[in-house]
Amino acid sequence: MEALTQFLSHYLIYIIMGLSVATALGIVFSKNAVHSVISMLFTMVLIAGVYLLFDAEFLAAVQLLVYAGGIIVLFLFVVLLVALHKLENLRLYNTYSLFSIILVILLIVILGATFLTMPFGEAPKVVSNIVAGGSTEAVAMSLYTKFILPFEIASVLLLVALIGAIILTKSGAEQ
């Protein structure tokens, strides 16, 4: 029992994090855009795994539904539509890529060092607000009472995006 809980709470999350960093690098450094999309799919699934280990099972399911079920399919669709073979002989990276890489590594090192030296408290062993009755109920109670106004605004935002996407992709002949 001890060994398994130890594994689940300590090492599994590091393994998932490492894998997701590797697949995230795959998004940026793949030559073929379809490979980028596959890397992104794996990244999103692994991030859903991270959510699961933080007792956010509802968010993990939503992550899978929204990203794997919707967003990445859209990406793949557009990538397949924009004839990739025409892009094959183009340059993949910008001219100042090396400079950008150094900057980003600096960003990660500085921020990472700051976070590692910050005194954060320990995680509570028992979480009462989230897990009681599952995170679904807790999220729903909060979403429909305290955050009802942002929730309504989010729905309007989605509607606007829906209409905007339709108008933008309509071809000139139909307008």
Binding site: A24, I27, L92, S97, S100, I108
Partner: peptide
């Protein structure tokens, strides 16, 4: 931060809008 950095890197160095 590492994931965020990779995202920034992608925006900075890639030329493909997708």
């Amino acid at each position: 931060v590492i994931l965020f950095g990779i995202g920034v890197l992608g925006v900075l160095i890639r030329r493909n809008a997708l």
